[in-house]
Amino acid sequence: MTVTPIDVAAVVVTFNSDDHIIELLDSIPAAMAGLTYSVVVVDNGSSDGTLELLDARTDCAVIRSTNEGYAAGMNRAVRMSPQCDSILILNPDATLDASAVPALREVLRRTGAGIVAPRVREVDGRLSPTLRRSPTLARVGGLSFTGWPMFTERIEDPSAYEVEHEVDWAVGAILLIDAVCFERLGGMDESYFLYSEETDFSLRAKDAGWATVYTPTAGAMHVGGGSGESAMTHTMKILNRVRLYRRRTGTLRAWVYFGLTVLIEIRRAMLGHSKSWPTVWSLLRPSLRPTLLRANDSVLPR
């Protein structure tokens, strides 16, 4: 018996997300605008009221899980979804504009891209600069204030958000992914646990011939920091950036990237960024690194 795929499988991973998840789920029907779709939420061991809120819903399937990481949760949500043409990855602290998903899907089909990213705004309506360039040695410091692409990973120029174009990668709060692309890449790399998984996925997709395209025709709002950032999550973010760079460029260049990262975090710590000191110690002493990353076997994280 032939199974007809649905248009879109929406997948969400929650972790202590009771402040936001209802707004996201409430925004989905209008955002789909007549498309056939499913919603699967994987909860990574929330200890707040997230599960109680989800259990009261009838518009999503809820999968209880221990916290195996964001990428693992996303992969599980996709596996538990019906057969589909495209996968809509959503952070629980995002909301979608009406008819956003058909607009994303039209770009996905027309361009043959693997990933499409929408125009995202902050809570106050300001543009959220979600587009990014590939990591390089020159961009390790995040020198956005220079405005020079050579030194800037984050794309700040407002004009870049007015037109449809290909990008290296985009922040993964709201992304529509071709289901074949997701399957052929084997989903997200679960070794990152948290942070850099969308960077890795988009860059691997590009390697395989699947572009990431930005479109201003679809809109969404993202609160950002919905699960908060602690010293540990900041450390995970920085370590994963080093791991990603090493995996894509090799050990020698990664040592340079690592050294620059240490210097940058020391500078940030001396300027008063309290989360940077624990990161410095974790970079220099692998035994202090979060065990969830499994990156404590060598100074240069693998």
Rank of each mutant, 00 (worst) to 15 (best):
residue 39 V to H: 06
residue 185 L to V: 15
residue 38 S to G: 12
residue 297 D to V: 07
residue 7 D to R: 00
residue 73 G to K: 07
residue 105 R to E: 14
residue 20 H to L: 00
residue 90 L to W: 08
residue 133 R to W: 05
residue 252 L to V: 14
residue 84 C to P: 03
residue 271 L to V: 01
residue 289 R to C: 04
residue 273 H to A: 14
residue 70 Y to Q: 09
residue 201 F to R: 11
residue 27 S to E: 01
residue 19 D to Q: 15
residue 178 D to R: 00
residue 266 I to M: 14
residue 170 A to H: 03
residue 33 A to V: 01
residue 284 L to P: 02
residue 255 W to E: 02
residue 30 A to R: 14
residue 184 R to Y: 05
residue 243 R to N: 11
residue 42 V to N: 09
residue 64 R to L: 02
residue 229 E to N: 09
residue 53 L to W: 07
residue 82 P to Y: 03
residue 249 T to L: 13
residue 110 R to A: 12
residue 72 A to Q: 02
residue 183 E to P: 06
residue 47 S to D: 08
residue 135 P to V: 04
residue 188 M to Q: 08
residue 226 G to D: 06
residue 280 V to N: 10
residue 141 G to D: 13
residue 28 I to P: 00
residue 33 A to R: 05
residue 287 S to I: 13
residue 58 T to H: 07
residue 179 A to V: 01
residue 186 G to L: 07
residue 246 R to C: 02
residue 32 M to Y: 06
residue 213 V to C: 04
residue 99 S to I: 11
residue 26 D to T: 01
residue 164 E to V: 02
residue 60 C to V: 15
residue 236 M to V: 03
residue 153 E to F: 13
residue 133 R to N: 08
residue 92 P to Q: 04
residue 215 T to H: 09
residue 206 K to W: 10
residue 289 R to H: 02
residue 297 D to H: 11
residue 208 A to C: 10
residue 18 D to M: 07
residue 18 D to G: 09
residue 125 G to F: 00
residue 294 R to W: 12
residue 208 A to V: 05
residue 289 R to Y: 02
residue 228 G to C: 13
residue 86 S to P: 02
residue 92 P to A: 14
residue 129 P to I: 14
residue 205 A to C: 05
residue 277 W to S: 14
residue 40 V to Q: 10
residue 102 P to K: 10
residue 188 M to N: 08
residue 197 E to L: 05
residue 55 D to T: 13
residue 128 S to I: 08
residue 142 G to S: 01
residue 299 V to C: 06
residue 201 F to Y: 10
residue 230 S to I: 00
residue 217 T to W: 07
residue 139 R to K: 00
residue 157 D to V: 07
residue 287 S to C: 07
residue 78 V to Q: 08
residue 272 G to D: 04
residue 93 D to W: 10
residue 55 D to K: 14
residue 118 P to T: 14
residue 215 T to S: 15
residue 9 A to M: 05
residue 239 L to Q: 00
residue 112 G to F: 11
residue 195 Y to E: 03
residue 206 K to I: 08
residue 204 R to M: 04
residue 248 R to D: 04
residue 244 L to D: 14
residue 197 E to I: 03
residue 206 K to S: 10
residue 109 R to I: 06
residue 263 L to I: 09
residue 93 D to S: 08
residue 221 M to Q: 15
residue 228 G to S: 04
residue 53 L to V: 09
residue 227 S to Q: 14
residue 176 L to T: 04
residue 203 L to F: 09
residue 73 G to T: 02
residue 124 D to W: 01
residue 95 T to A: 04
residue 187 G to Y: 08
residue 183 E to F: 06
residue 42 V to F: 03
residue 137 L to Y: 01
residue 42 V to I: 06
residue 21 I to C: 02
residue 127 L to W: 15
residue 151 F to N: 12
residue 133 R to S: 13
residue 68 E to G: 10
residue 241 R to L: 10
residue 210 W to I: 00
residue 93 D to G: 12
residue 139 R to M: 01
residue 146 T to L: 01
residue 227 S to H: 09
residue 75 N to T: 05
residue 207 D to N: 07
residue 251 T to G: 10
residue 1 M to I: 03
residue 205 A to F: 04
residue 37 Y to C: 05
residue 297 D to M: 06
residue 206 K to A: 15
